[in-house]
Design a binder for these strands. Structure first.
Lengths: 221, 221
DNA sequence: TAGATTGTTAATCGATTAACAATC
DNA sequence: TAGATTGTTAATCGATTAACAATC
């Protein structure tokens, strides 16, 4: 497996490849060509071959790619078989949805602790894990050394908690659902943002822009 | 406001600009230069000036940009003052989190109906709206003509419901949380995906890749 | 006026697409 | 062998950065 710094554009396509391969595999499809996969995924065959060749030559000239082999390789590339210990911070609506909706185990993670500062939630269980007071967070982390923290917090506290985790317990990997962009400062931190509000605003722009375009042509007619 | 088809790269930066401007405005900062904004946002001044000039000349040479004016303009560009009627489909963990966590009104949307097919949920309320049976969905839409549908469904049903909404009631705008890529088919559909699982897998890749790089240099030493 | 900072054009960089020789 | 399809190099396209004249 060669790997000379893969570009983010390629990296962001990997999970989608994995999904399609998983589906093909589940449907017992044995082989696929770059052009067949391209038409299914709405990409070009060229791009698929370029993407795959970032990681090695998986294909066979004249034949294509073995779905099963490719699927497995992609799992390894993504690191799906890891078990990175992970803490969830914030067990409000969003935190609970994330905890119950996402299959951590099949994606390389393991939930080991959940924290909130709402007394009503402390002591209750979520995914079989007891929700602890945020006061225990630092001590828990020092003892259990999680690799990843999921931030499901309202805006301001997101930044504070992240800073604390970075500086006091050395967590460097975050899955961030809080609205604000934490950390332009820490260059060595891996921060994966899920900015749902940004996505919704983008949708608003796209709809509004289309309406504007429609009105403009109406006027021209 | 000029607008000759804005590229997706620019569009996806708009909500982030809006957030930063909102913050600056809330802090009563009156003017800002492209270079000051660039350093705060981790972009280049050049890019900011290019981006803004997609929509018009908001600045003043020698002075910079008026925060308040720019903030307001961006609100208009994004279409934040619209009130697109929106239905939420799926009121499980994720649907409930989305409904309660997101401020639709401040982003150009209005929740008008919620649907689920779990009998336990039907009749209960969420954000003041009674959850209805999915059986009512088509009739409701024919009567109320929502502009947007939010899909918070498990994988397969996502595709089915989307197809039904597109074909039977003519909905063309979707905020999609379901795992699978609906619609490569419908070219005129606006689909904004929030693939949380993909984001988590990307995080897994980035962590795993870093570990691999670390091990590689360790071995070289 | 002098200094600052924009709007815009030109240069560079990166990502996607096309082409084709290698080979199963 | 002939046909298919890869891996890879070259060409194109788009996005970002740099430069600078215009101007507040």
């Amino acid at each position: 497996m060669k790997n000379d710094r893969i570009s983010m554009s390629v990296i962001r396509r990997l999970p989608r490849y994995y999904r399609f391969l998983s589906e093909l595999n589940a449907n017992s499809i044995k082989r696929i060509s770059s052009s067949e996969l391209a038409s299914r995924m709405g990409l070009t065959a060229s791009q698929i071959r370029q993407d795959l060749n970032c990681f090695g030559g998986f294909g066979q000239q004249g034949y294509g790619y073995s779905v099963e082999q490719l699927y497995e390789s992609f799992g390894n590339i993504l690191g799906i078989h890891n078990c990175y210990p992970t803490v969830l911070i914030g067990a409000g609506n969003l935190g609970r949805a994330v905890a119950s909706h996402i299959s951590f185990e099949s994606k390389g993670f393991k939930l080991v602790g959940i924290f909130d500062n709402n007394p009503q939630l402390i002591g209750t269980k979520l995914k079989g894990i007891e929700i602890q007071s945020s006061d225990n967070l630092v001590d828990f982390c020092k003892e259990n050394i999680p690799k990843v923290a999921i931030l499901c917090l309202p805006r301001d506290s997101g930044e504070n908690v992240a800073e604390k985790l970075i500086n006091e317990v050395g967590i460097k990997c975050f899955w961030n659902f809080s609205h604000y962009d934490i950390t332009l400062k820490h260059k060595d931190v891996i921060m994966e943002n899920v900015h749902m509000s940004d996505s919704l605003m983008t949708l608003c722009y796209r709809i509004t822009d289309e309406e504007r375009a429609k009105n403009a042509t109406d006027e021209t007619e």
